[in-house]
């Protein structure tokens, strides 16, 4: 048990923080739903690891597990929708993760524009971080939360596709949880927060299913709106 604690302690440092930043950036930049959901999964696990230094280990694990479940709900939904519609990824002209064009055939922003928007967010974040101060919360948590909020907000503004919106809003909420969990350690609140996260994932998966039946041509997560 002590070994596990020391491993967790070792992991919950700079590598995990870097993992969170990379994951939220990937969620926004990629057009491939598999990569996007994998990044969301990594993000939740990293947040759980980061939180082990600020809150009880069991609660941090519970938070990570909730996130993993939410990702699982979304994954199963998109997988089923694709199977029902007979969509094969191999049919795509280019791999979905690296669409370079300004706009793909379904109207989403291409990688170039998404990269430019990301640069703007990072610049604003670096500038704004100096003036933000949260008592009792480590500075690197604040930076990660603002990073996630920035990329989540950008994802929310630039897309109407339910899967993209779901990953963006879950990123924002996870970022806020990084700030809020050390401040409010109440067990009941942790339970309600988890219920809300799972409820949101279920509601979005329902919207993904309904949207797929509305005749939009694109695969879920690859813009149809």
């Amino acid at each position: 048990m002590q070994n596990l604690a020391s491993v967790l302690n070792l992991l919950a440092g700079a590598p995990t923080l870097f993992g969170v930043l990379l994951a939220s950036g990937t969620i926004f930049l990629t057009s491939d739903w598999r990569l996007s959901l994998t990044a969301l999964l990594v993000q939740y696990v990293c947040i759980g690891l980061l939180l082990t230094r600020s809150i009880q280990g069991e609660i941090a694990i519970l938070k990570a597990l909730t996130g993993v479940l939410a990702v699982l709900i979304l994954y199963i939904t998109v997988r089923r929708v694709q199977e029902e519609r007979g969509f094969l990824p191999e049919q795509a002209e280019f791999p979905a993760a690296v669409r370079w064009g300004v706009a793909d055939p379904h109207g989403s922003l291409g990688l170039v524009l998404r990269l430019l928007a990301s640069v703007l967010v990072v610049l604003a974040l670096v500038q704004g971080f100096k003036s933000v101060h949260f008592p009792r919360v480590p500075a690197h948590f604040v930076f990660a939360a603002l990073w996630m909020g920035g990329f989540g907000g950008l994802g929310l503004v630039l897309s109407g596709d339910p899967l993209r919106v779901a990953t963006a809003i879950l990123t924002i909420l996870a970022g806020f949880d990084l700030l809020y969990a050390p401040l409010e350690p109440s067990l009941a609140l942790v339970g309600l927060w988890s219920a809300m996260t799972l409820g949101a994932a279920l509601a979005f998966s329902y919207l993904i299913v309904v949207d797929s039946g509305s005749g939009s041509r694109s695969a879920p997560g690859e813009e149809g709106d």
Binding site: G160, A200, A203, L207, V210, D211, S214, G215
Partner: peptide
């Protein structure tokens, strides 16, 4: 609000804009 989405959409295939915006705003 997450439950409300189910009755707002009411299983209708078509635009999900209203239900989705409601959910996003509630979560934000």
């Amino acid at each position: 609000a997450a439950l409300m989405v189910l009755i707002l959409q009411a299983g209708q295939a078509g635009s999900i804009r209203g239900a989705q915006r409601y959910l996003v705003i509630a979560l934000l």
